[in-house]
Design a protein around this nucleic acid. Sequence first.
DNA 1: AATGAATGAGCATTCATTCAT
DNA 2: CATGAATGAATGCTCATTCAT
Lengths: 194, 194, 194, 194
Amino acid sequence: MRGEEKYRMILNAAKHVFAMEGFYNSKVSEIAREAHVADGTIYLYFKNKDDILISLFEEELNGIITSVKEKIKDITDPREKIIKFCDNHLTIVESDRDLAEVIQVELRQSNKFMREYKNKHFLAYLNIIADIISQGQEEGIFRDHLKPDICARVIFGSLDELSTYLVTSRRKRFDVHEVAVLVGNSFLDGLVKK
Amino acid sequence: MRGEEKYRMILNAAKHVFAMEGFYNSKVSEIAREAHVADGTIYLYFKNKDDILISLFEEELNGIITSVKEKIKDITDPREKIIKFCDNHLTIVESDRDLAEVIQVELRQSNKFMREYKNKHFLAYLNIIADIISQGQEEGIFRDHLKPDICARVIFGSLDELSTYLVTSRRKRFDVHEVAVLVGNSFLDGLVKK
Amino acid sequence: MRGEEKYRMILNAAKHVFAMEGFYNSKVSEIAREAHVADGTIYLYFKNKDDILISLFEEELNGIITSVKEKIKDITDPREKIIKFCDNHLTIVESDRDLAEVIQVELRQSNKFMREYKNKHFLAYLNIIADIISQGQEEGIFRDHLKPDICARVIFGSLDELSTYLVTSRRKRFDVHEVAVLVGNSFLDGLVKK
Amino acid sequence: MRGEEKYRMILNAAKHVFAMEGFYNSKVSEIAREAHVADGTIYLYFKNKDDILISLFEEELNGIITSVKEKIKDITDPREKIIKFCDNHLTIVESDRDLAEVIQVELRQSNKFMREYKNKHFLAYLNIIADIISQGQEEGIFRDHLKPDICARVIFGSLDELSTYLVTSRRKRFDVHEVAVLVGNSFLDGLVKK
DNA sequence: AATGAATGAGCATTCATTCAT
DNA sequence: CATGAATGAATGCTCATTCAT
């Protein structure tokens, strides 16, 4: 349908502009120009500039969450699941630098509305890792004293900082699959009972 | 000296205001009020608003770098050095939430000048970790195939995300010393030759 | 005919919306919604937003003028005519608060086009009073030195301000028939030769 | 003092611009230009555009109220007081056409804040007339059955409509002193006990 | 050095109007 | 005739920065 198409065009333009300039330095009129719509048209699809950013996260994070859940659902070994999760995250980031930039840069914005937003969709993403850890602990594979929420933060933090490294550099810093295995294994060495 | 005193007052006010509102939502006049100086006075000590943020990082990061270098200089075991590094980072963050907020939130801003800035002082901080890894590899304690820069990113990313967790929550999520050991050991399990 | 029906619906919706929000705070889309037509449809019947207001006056004032002329045409005594005029004005205002609001609030708008408009249809209404005065003077009933146009303004101003009083208040301030007699007589005392 | 001076300059510029264009067609930047200040300066003295209009009324109405109270305070005969009130109103209007235009045109605006405003300062003006009527009734000079608030509206409405007449016309329509006496007497004929 | 009143460039948002369907 | 999605000109307001005192 036409409307849906414009909605996508605006979000894509916004992703690019936000990635290039940062949210606060981005101009709505610039997004409109890149989306090939008039300034006013944006306000038919979004309540305001903030709403564009929120919608962008909502859409993209949902996509990422759906895709990673799909990819790990047939894996039984929690160790392999974690490596797959890392691999998926870095692969997406590598294939969509704008997205990576927006997630890293703007997920940190501290508006109240953003903080609340994070407490909803971002946590769903973190919980995927935490759930894998819990599962591994129940299966007696992972050490019991490690708190899943802390581990999830540690793993996500590593991946996110590596993404920054990837995005910030103009030249290629590392092979994502190789590093995903490295990060996964690094933690697994700490996680797995000896 | 008088001037030095005002400079400090402005930076402290800025740290607080930036932490509360975020850089872009902070007003120079608000910083001036909190610092008990006139708006114009700020421009006697800083070139512009951006310069306040840059100077803030410069000062704070230098302090952190100096303090952590001091703390690890008498430790010989690279494994202990890494744990000490983690412990130091999380302890500082816990004792100065405003600083933590500013580092996490604003270090991600994507102005070009910020990017360049990061490539200077922030890298000095990362290099402390990378150097420890290199040292450990030279001593034959750490595995050789791990790239020190990648490892440094992974460790910093973990610590930084844990800081966010610490700062974002109103209630205490974890004991920083305990977690510092955990993070350090987690990586060490992966780093150390078996 | 269909078109005539929509024209009426739009004017009625406009009267209500203008009365509620004032001309400048009214949105064409709001009028369209209340009239149960599409935004664009309005432009099939009116040149622009201004034209809606002008047409509204035109229609309503013409109605009022026609009705009052009908009511006073069989009265011969100019004193009774004036009282009837007052009674008619206040009765209409009381029965159609939206109309009253629009006349009072918007008749005062000072666009050039409005000024010109007033100089055409509004004057026709004032002239009804002025003509009665002139008639009374010719018949030797009213004092000769009073200028009919001034008297017409005085009488209309009184009625209009009383209408404001009526419309602004939530509770009933006075009985319109009683006050019409009062206003009429008040002037007549001044008008009539002793 | 300087600040007070700028405040006056802005209000005077606003009075002129509002009178020329009407409130909604007036641009803040136009007021700024006429006041010989920068756009932003206006917001040092006024909260927003609405606040300029409100302050304008506040100042001007207070001035009018003060001046008329002063003028009638030594008059004992309520009949003379009313004539003096009318004379004062029309004289002010004649000497400050911009003020007259703003009062008439914009006092009718129907924003909620305006309605509330009217219920405070405008009523103080009306009450001056109502008090005179009450006084006259207590002294046994005016008829008892006339309600002072209704009479006040009638008299103000007459004066206001005559002001419109005065302001709208380019040529002089009447002598204000003569008409003031006429309006006053007109009502007095109705008011005074025979 | 310190002040803070003044500046004015810059931008998000609104909404009357159009026109392809 | 009717629609309503799309347009884009227009403007109130903010706030970093300046500079006369």
